[in-house]
């Protein structure tokens, strides 16, 4: 056996024990999860925004309900709205924190971008080229661990946010339905007040044909030939 073969054998024995670890360290399927959590958080915030926007459409009717003479209805609507607002704030806050949560601090690792950016290109080069396989695996494992911790924290918050959104959606549905039906039932509804008066189709046609300024009353009855 030559010296080169011995060296190769020695190197093989050193890295052989690390083969599985290296593969697992570099290919741990972990890097898509923070962005997945971010997407979920954004969806929750978007859902919150949409629910509030729908309330905005119905806000006249909600105000009308709150000025109702029946105290029971006022109390019910206020309770529903207050519960919805609390859930919205808690869920939204959890989603926001999950979205903006930074990666937890980690020991020095050349796998993490602030660490690389902190060095000059020459320092980075000189540091990375003297690393052994074991050190490389160690550095990537440090990064993986921090990322895993980040994912766990993000998803824990998202679970809470999701629970809030579920309950919130139920309340939103009830409030929206009540507001929608209240507008139809109440005779003082702004929709009914503002709705245009019904015009007889025949009368409208005649009006447009004759004059735009002077509406004419058309007598209903059988048409006669002149």
């Amino acid at each position: 056996m030559t010296t080169t073969d011995l060296a190769a054998e020695d190197r093989f024995q050193n890295t052989d024990a690390l083969l599985g670890a290296t593969r697992l360290a570099f290919f741990t399927p972990i890097r898509n999860y923070p962005s997945l959590a971010d997407s979920k958080a954004k969806s929750i915030l978007a859902a919150d925004g949409l629910m509030i926007s729908v309330f905005l459409i119905y806000h006249d009717r909600l105000v009308m309900l709150l000025h109702n003479d029946y105290l029971g209805v006022v109390f019910l609507i206020l309770t529903l709205l207050a519960s919805f607002s609390c859930l919205l704030l808690i869920g939204g806050f959890c989603a926001y924190i999950a979205l903006t949560m930074p990666i937890p601090p980690m020991p020095e690792s050349l796998a993490f971008f602030p660490e690389i950016a902190r060095l000059s290109l020459d320092e980075y080069r000189s540091k990375i080229t003297v690393l052994t396989h074991r050190q490389v695996v160690h550095k990537i494992l440090i990064y993986n661990y921090s990322l895993a911790t980040l994912c766990a924290r993000k998803f824990a918050l998202l679970r809470r946010a999701m629970a809030c959104v579920r309950a919130q959606f139920f309340l939103w549905l009830v409030i929206t339905l009540v507001a929608a039906f209240a507008g139809k039932v109440d005779p003082k509804s702004p929709d009914k007040d503002n709705s245009p008066p019904r015009v007889d189709r025949k009368a409208r046609v005649t009006h447009s044909r004759l004059s735009l300024d002077a509406p004419t009353v058309v007598a209903k009855g059988p048409a006669t030939d002149e």
Binding site: R31, T100, F113, I128
Partner: peptide, 22 residues
């Protein structure tokens, strides 16, 4: 070899889109 393994597999690509999405 060790340097190349880390350099070519340094997990950097996912960070700019994450910042943009936020």
């Amino acid at each position: 070899d060790a340097a190349a393994t880390l350099a070519f597999l340094t997990p950097l690509q996912e960070h700019p889109p994450a910042a943009d999405a936020k």
